[in-house]
Amino acid sequence: MTHTRDALVLVDLQNAFFDEEGLAERQTEIVDAANRLIDAAHAAGLPIYMITTEHSRDESTWTLNMLEAGTGFLFQGDEGTQIVPGLKTTDTTKVEKTRDSAFFGTDLNMRFVNKRIGRIILAGVSTHGCVAQTTRDAFAHNIRATIVTDAVADTRDDYHRTQINQLEADRQATLATVDEIIARWQAEASRS
Rank of each mutant, 00 (worst) to 15 (best):
E21Q: 12
A183H: 07
T106W: 04
L46F: 05
A44R: 06
F139M: 09
D32F: 02
L37S: 04
I147M: 01
H128R: 06
A153V: 00
F18A: 02
L108V: 08
A173E: 08
S190D: 13
F112E: 06
I120M: 15
S126A: 12
Q27D: 02
V152Q: 00
D157P: 00
E180H: 03
L23V: 02
L23N: 03
L8C: 09
L8S: 06
T61Q: 13
N65G: 03
A69V: 01
L122Q: 13
F112D: 05
L67I: 06
N35W: 14
T89F: 05
G118N: 09
F103R: 02
R99H: 11
A40L: 06
I48R: 06
T134H: 08
T93E: 13
L87N: 02
G77Q: 10
T52Q: 12
G80N: 07
R184I: 14
Q76I: 07
T177A: 06
A132C: 08
D137Y: 09
I51E: 03
T149P: 00
D150Q: 01
D19F: 10
A123H: 04
T71E: 07
L37H: 04
A173P: 08
L108H: 08
G124A: 09
D179C: 06
S126Q: 09
D179Q: 09
G80S: 10
A102M: 11
A24T: 08
R156C: 02
G80Q: 05
N65P: 04
Q82I: 01
K97A: 01
R5G: 11
A173G: 06
P47S: 11
Q14T: 06
L87R: 01
K88F: 10
E188R: 12
V95A: 05
L64T: 00
K94I: 07
L10N: 01
T90N: 06
V131Y: 07
E188I: 05
V148C: 01
